[in-house]
Design a protein around this nucleic acid. Structure first.
Lengths: 150, 150
DNA sequence: GGTGAAACGTAGGCCGT
DNA sequence: ACGGCCTACGTTTCACC
């Protein structure tokens, strides 16, 4: 639906890197005039390709001291079983992402908590209580050398 | 380390919602003068609480039809080996996230590509070429019932 | 796509509290 | 230490080429 335009691609890449770059600096980096650049950005915003702009917060400095991924294996592969599991996670604030994946487990979750104690509580009292859950493997995030999550 | 300041919290919430709001509009919304608001924003940027700003892209409209997580095991656990690996990923646009995790592998990557062919190219020509890489396990994302990255 | 100019926003010095 | 005012400077934006 959208023809691959070299200028637009470069603009997009730069805006994902630095969403607050001035239009002038952006224009200079892509080699267009400010007005042409602005028109392209506005067009991409209007068609919904650029959904918005966000400040990126350092979770540690904002009081989130514990991040982990959990691989979840289910023992109930029925549609109802999966839906029940997904519904249970939808209301848990610690669960920031839930991905349905291929492989030896069914789900990959991203969990963010205040500290290890808060994580343990979630692990045993929320996840451990669900009847569909067969296996849980926690991978604690020690650092993220690259993170371009929106 | 950081006392809960009512103004800063409001500023932060607004900037996460709209990272491109003008300082003037931000000042009006929090009820401060533009200069006071700017100083607070700059202080939060300087202390690293605000790490940066990003445009949020609609993946479908950007032609991204393939998302996967890759667990990467290294055979080189030295500081230099890990830094070389991280540097190689920093410039790869397919790598959206790189997390250093505990467990039987060292890294968890989130990969976004146009299609399976583009992913295969990245897998063999970029990752497969790095000397530090010992094991690669791909988990294809079939869906994300919950995703609060946006 | 580029140019130009008016409208708008930024950023920092300065002063008051 | 922190907020408001002022202002020179930079940026955005749009009608027009």
């Amino acid at each position: 639906m959208r023809q691959s335009n070299h200028f637009d691609d470069r603009i997009l890449r730069i805006l994902v890197e630095d969403g607050r770059i001035t239009n002038q600096a952006l224009a200079e980096r892509v080699g267009l005039s400010p007005s042409a650049t602005l028109r392209r950005v506005q067009a991409m915003e209007a068609m919904g390709l650029i959904k918005g702009y966000r400040a990126v917060i350092d979770p540690e400095k904002a009081g989130i001291g514990f991040t982990a991924y959990i691989a979840v294996g289910l023992n109930d592969h029925t549609k109802d079983g999966q839906e029940g599991f997904e519904r249970a996670l939808a209301s848990a604030p610690e669960v920031r992402e839930c991905h349905n994946i291929t492989g030896n487990v069914e789900y990959l979750l991203r969990i963010e908590a205040r500290d290890l104690a808060a994580y343990k509580h979630f692990h045993t009292e929320v996840l451990g209580v669900l009847p569909q859950v067969a296996r849980l493997t926690t991978y604690v995030v020690m650092g993220s050398p690259k993170d371009e999550r929106a």
